[in-house]
Computed example of a mutant assay.
Amino acid sequence: MKLSRTARIVLGCVTAAGLAVVYAPLLLVLLNSFNADRSFGWPPSGLTGEWWRAALHNHGARDALLTSLKAGLAATGIALGLGTMAAYAVHRHRFFGRRTVSFLLVLPIALPGIVSGIALNAAFRTVLDPLGIGFGLFTVVVGHATFCVVVVFNNVAARLRRISPSMAEASADLGARPWQTFRHVTFPAMRSALFAGALLAFALSFDEIVVTTFTAGPGTRTLPIWIYENLARPHQAPVVNVVAALLVALSVVPVAVAQRLSSDTAGGRL
């Protein structure tokens, strides 16, 4: 479809305005992390790296970062295992209720975070409390895994749809067992999708705050929770801006890499 010059200009202006609404606040956070004025007066009275040094030496922020990394890596590992097996079962086998299972696997990502958080909180209190297991890192990991599985499932399922079944059939004709076919044919073809799904799942877990609020214990603080708790404290505001800027940077990298891998039309190689 060929657009007129006026239509292209209007479309470009609307796109630029939309991107500005999304990314201008992020750029403002980054600029304020170097703002010498503690009250963030505008325009900045000067630039300084003092807040970055303060953030690096802030024990609360470092502990929260470590907790987020632990939760993100654990939730991603669980999601990789469950999401891959579920995608393989749904898209390589025919059984009763297959569409229902696929729908139920995708549903958690569509539910509002506060609904998932309340449901998980009630479930943990009902099931884990009698067993003497309280809220903490374990419950955070389980809560994050519920929606991280969806990301891995969708990535692997999309890649499996692009892999011709004839490849597995040819492998079987040559005498390979199902596990050998998966190891030498299917897995190499979907390896990049697994990596992309893991990156997206980690980024989703690392940024999560709503579900974490309902599943974390009193002494468990992830980085988003730490930011939220310190946002209203005047003396911590510059450090919060630095941590928020780092959080944005850490989130951009895995999402960009995952998008590049997901768009790989060859189906396969890292």
Rank of each mutant, 00 (worst) to 15 (best):
Phe153His: 04
Arg53Tyr: 10
Phe206Thr: 01
Phe202Lys: 01
Ser116Leu: 14
Ala266Leu: 14
Leu231Arg: 14
Asn32Glu: 09
Cys13Glu: 04
Asp129Ile: 11
Val21Ser: 08
Thr139Pro: 00
Gly77Pro: 00
Ala201Pro: 05
Gln259Tyr: 13
Met85Leu: 15
Ala245Glu: 06
Asn154Tyr: 05
Ala16Leu: 07
Leu250Gln: 11
Leu247Pro: 04
Asp37Cys: 11
Trp51Glu: 01
Leu28Arg: 05
Ala201Gly: 08
Leu105Ile: 10
Gly77Glu: 03
Phe34Lys: 08
Arg221Pro: 03
Ala237Ile: 02
Gly217Ile: 12
Thr213Cys: 02
Ala86Thr: 12
Val14Lys: 04
Arg62Gly: 00
Gly217Asp: 11
Ile78Asn: 04
Ala36Ser: 15
Ala24Pro: 04
Val211Cys: 05
Ala89Asp: 13
Asp173Glu: 12
Gly136Phe: 13
Ala201Gln: 07
Leu128Glu: 11
Val149Trp: 03
Arg8Ile: 01
Arg260Ile: 04
Leu104Pro: 03
Leu194Met: 15
Thr48Ile: 14
Gly60Phe: 09
Ala86His: 04
Gly217Ser: 11
Leu261Pro: 02
Ser102Cys: 03
Leu19Glu: 09
Val141Phe: 00
Ala170Phe: 07
Ser192Asp: 02
Gly267Leu: 10
His57Pro: 03
Ala258Lys: 07
Leu270His: 12
Pro25Arg: 02
Thr139Trp: 02
Glu169Lys: 09
